[in-house]
């Protein structure tokens, strides 16, 4: 499996090591997914380049109108962060549901994205936040919208044998924004979700000003229910409207039949149910905050 385990001491050093091993080396952070993939023969790299000791990548901070989360930041850190709970509660809610405490202590949000599994709590919340990823290569750095890097089940356009995601950033949600994270799973902990719906809602009085709805894993990648979002703008926040939005969102779901996650028919129906519930909860949260 692995012939060498190395620690990078800077982003440049990590990229240099990747270049030196010409595709045989891969970045590792928490390793909660990668170790298992490697043991199952799904990861061909033979050299691991650990990024968890690079100084400066473990911070959550607000800078220039963005919230930045470094590549080493774990799900546990995000779930406990006062800044995230205040300015992007949807992400704290999502990260607090990943695995169990031990997984959250080791697994990173950035790793969750790069691994590109559709059943990804943190990444689904990042779709709501229209997050961007900072990608470092030996040529320089660039920002990529999260929706661009997901290409299919387990396929991320960022190649961890060549380049490195150093941070995630997004704009804070408006103060009056209400969030809801609905998760359907077979147990309350230590299990991947059958369905997640992440919602951020903004209201003016009883009228919906803006809605963001991200859904996973009922298609090869998490997605935004854009039809439902557009429908909601300017509508009154009431049960019938939420139910109609749920139907619109469900129309875009393409779940597979799965012995573990349930039938396609069931999960499609549940998209409608959870979107309706999430909108109701988010609207209440708006009133509470407003």
């Amino acid at each position: 499996m692995w012939e060498e385990y190395l620690f990078a001491n800077s982003v440049e050093h990590a990229l240099e090591l990747l270049a030196r091993y010409e595709g045989q080396a891969q970045l590792i952070a928490g390793g909660t997914d990668l170790v298992l993939q490697s043991q199952r023969g799904q990861c061909p790299a033979t050299v691991m380049v650990d990024i968890t000791r690079i100084p400066g990548l473990n911070r959550i901070e607000e800078r220039d109108g963005f919230i930045l989360i470094g590549a080493q930041v774990t799900h546990a850190q995000i779930a406990a962060s006062a800044l995230i709970r205040d300015k992007a509660p949807i992400l704290a809610m999502a990260c607090s549901q990943v695995g169990g405490p031990q997984t959250r202590n080791a697994g990173t949000l950035v790793g969750n994205v790069v691994n590109a599994q559709p059943a990804a709590d943190g990444a689904t919340a990042l779709f709501v936040l229209d997050a961007e990823l900072e990608v470092a290569t030996q040529e320089g750095r660039r920002w990529e919208p999260i929706a661009h890097v997901y290409r299919g089940v387990g396929i991320c356009t960022i190649n961890a044998c060549r380049e490195m995601v150093t941070a995630v950033r997004f704009k804070p949600l408006a103060n009056a924004c209400g969030c809801s994270y609905q998760r359907l799973a077979r147990r309350k902990a230590l299990t991947l979700p059958t369905l997640v719906v992440a919602v951020a809602l903004e209201m003016l009085g009883d009228t919906i000003k803006a809605a963001r709805i991200a859904i996973g894993p009922v298609a090869p990648t998490p997605y935004r229910a854009t039809d439902a979002e557009a429908y909601l703008v300017g509508k009154k926040a009431e049960e019938a409207v939420f139910a109609e939005a749920g139907q619109l969102a469900a129309a875009k779901a393409r779940p597979r039949d799965s012995l573990i996650r349930g039938s396609s028919e069931y999960r499609t129906a549940m998209v409608g149910v959870l979107v309706r519930r999430a909108l109701g909860e988010a609207a209440q949260e708006c009133h509470r905050r407003g």
Partner: peptide, 15 residues
């Protein structure tokens, strides 16, 4: 001091 599942923690991480 932090709880981790040692069965999926690369031993080298304890360096």
């Amino acid at each position: 001091g932090v709880a981790v599942t040692s069965c999926i923690t690369p031993a080298m991480k304890a360096q």
